[in-house]
Design a protein around this nucleic acid. Structure first.
Lengths: 342, 342
DNA sequence: AGCTATACTGAAATGGGTTTCATGAAAGCC
DNA sequence: GGCTTTCATGAAACCCATTTCAGTATAGCT
């Protein structure tokens, strides 16, 4: 029942636990015959040192806490793959929390991770403007970060200066809008995104700026934030198509909403991209398999994850790190955006 | 730097650590004024008991290890969501490992989880027929399961009798094939799946059986296992379409391969489902947003995850559990399968 | 032969909690 | 008022490893 301990091994090998520990960690010379005997016993009982005992003493767990808002949105598994790959290199594993954007869960998980004494935290899905919640969470995170190395991925918390790793979503948005403008669109809508999330507010602002720079007017009734789900994309495209004056193109905050928007437009009998151009964001794996293939903006999800871990590791080693590490997004031109019909 | 401990609190409150512990866990009466003072200090320093220290003594971590083969396949995040929801109820968190079907990684993660003393393991993605690998892994898992409660989700390991929770993939496959037969198809192909994975062999067998029962002949050149990716679906549909005699419908091992197959068929100028019917498996969230909407088989991913955790919890409480818990899959009829053109 | 450097090993402290046992004080009971 | 509970608390053992300190034995050197 009880797992084998270093004491059991020591007893059977007729040595002290110190010697066993030395064999395990190879921290000091041990006589060949003794070592052989101990190694044999370790093998025999399939002994694994208890990470809690070790961690207690060394004050580290080898665990990185990762908080993501929504695992069913393929963007996050991509980031996670990067995180895992990089974490593995240094023997770290990770504790995952899916918060579904629920503030209470974020808070709870933060607390659990403190209890578990994770070596570091990667926090994705920054929110903004949430009044009490934001303030409370921000305060909590700052307090937290003062004890445990923490890096925010894509989206900071206003009023804090936590370490961040982020794709330049603003530049990415500009890329997308410019592309639509170059294709000849003059009426462009904006679909999706929760307004209290950093990612949305960044894109909203960048969208307005890019429109202005392109000499186009933003029509407020075409600005349709909602959430990040496929359904929200569908819903808002539906709303858009019910208007008297419609845009010929939309920028969607992510690929999921873009898929939803395309779906709704198709159901309404429109042809993509001839009747309606749609550009997404994230370049999820599915984007180039969807019909039509999605024109979108890649923010190098995988790289984002890797970078976050590397920054975190640097922090754990008490190295100086930049406040903000930025990754450049890329426009991926495929089929869902084209020139408007004359 | 160092986090606040129970000793720090005890010292400042001028009581013993025992008393502080009693306040934290509410395990014995403590004088009101003392309790108040201690609680205040806990608040003040934001004290969190060290889970390692506690775990060491109580011999539990509150962590469930979860091993999945591929997080970027949306089926698994769905299962994971169920796992998380149920784990949360009892205050468990989980350590995640993405193995990409890599045997060495599975083995390594297993070892790490032992070291971390997870309270239980959920293992997804059983393989079969892998010669050395399988044997070694199976042996390892069995050994592992004798120490730490372990449940396999969807797919057992031959020669072992580990506890399992699984959708009846065999019945699900039959449902799909029967549906195609009822629609009037007589030539049906099989696409995707790695042959050494349990899930593939189950579906392969069930497919043959259902075909036979429907009075149809299985054409070996239309049996095209490959992998679980979108690309593999695309590739095999491509191969299929290059043949002189083609089926009018295909059964795909999962929705990803189905999407790939549809993509390839569409690119070849075929109309789905008139020229080619495709049915998938899993009913990933995207399935009813894809164009055309996917006819598929739901295996209740979320429920699968929840059930796995509940079985695991029962095992952790040393309750008797069934060797195999089965979930019934459902056929979801949408647009990608229809009657063949005359 | 005598001395030092090195190999090898064990005892004990340590990390941060939980829990049992013991004890003194206060409260309840007749 | 004396006895039994209950309340309230502290001391110490325990969980399982790592690491320091100290000590013995062997090897190497002059």
């Amino acid at each position: 029942m009880r797992q084998v301990t270093i004491y059991d091994i020591a007893k059977e090998a007729e040595v002290s636990i110190s010697t066993v520990s030395r064999v395990i960690n190879d921290t000091a010379p041990v006589k060949g015959s003794t070592r052989a005997k101990i190694e044999e016993l370790i093998q025999k009982y399939n002994f694994q040192p208890n990470a809690m005992a070790r961690g207690l003493l060394k004050n580290e767990t080898g665990i990185i806490g990762v908080i993501v808002p929504d695992l069913t949105n393929p963007f996050f598994p991509e980031v996670l793959a990067g995180v895992e790959h990089e974490a593995m290199q240094s023997g770290h594993t990770f504790l995952l929390s899916n918060t579904i954007g629920d503030y209470a869960k974020e808070s709870e998980y933060l607390s659990i991770m403190r209890e578990k004494r994770v070596d570091g935290i990667i926090f994705m899905g920054g929110r903004i403007n949430l009044k009490h919640c934001e303030e409370h969470l921000a305060q909590e995170l700052v307090q937290f970060a003062s004890v445990i190395p923490t890096v925010l991925v894509n989206g900071g918390l206003r009023g804090t200066d936590l370490i961040r790793v982020a794709a330049d979503e603003s530049a990415g948005t500009a890329l997308a809008v410019q592309h639509l403008i170059e294709l000849g669109h003059t009426g462009i809508g904006f679909i999706g995104g929760e307004v209290h999330m950093t990612t949305t507010s960044i894109k909203l602002r960048a969208f307005r700026k890019a429109m202005k720079e392109g000499g186009l007017k933003v029509r407020e009734e075409w600005m349709l934030p909602d959430s990040f789900s496929i359904d929200s994309g569908k819903r808002q495209m539906h709303n858009l198509l019910a208007m008297k004056k419609k845009p010929t193109a939309v920028f969607c905050v992510n690929d999921y909403t873009a898929i939803g928007a395309i779906k709704a437009a198709t159901e309404a009998g429109l042809t993509i991209p001839d009747d309606m151009s749609v550009v997404g964001f994230d370049d999820i794996p599915l984007a180039h398999h969807f019909i039509p293939e999605l024109t979108t903006v890649s923010q190098q999800a995988n790289e984002l994850g890797k970078t976050a871990v590397n920054v975190l590791k640097a922090m754990m080693n008490k190295e100086k790190v930049k406040k903000l590490t930025t990754l450049e997004p890329q426009l991926i031109v495929r089929q869902s955006a084209g020139s408007p019909r004359k």
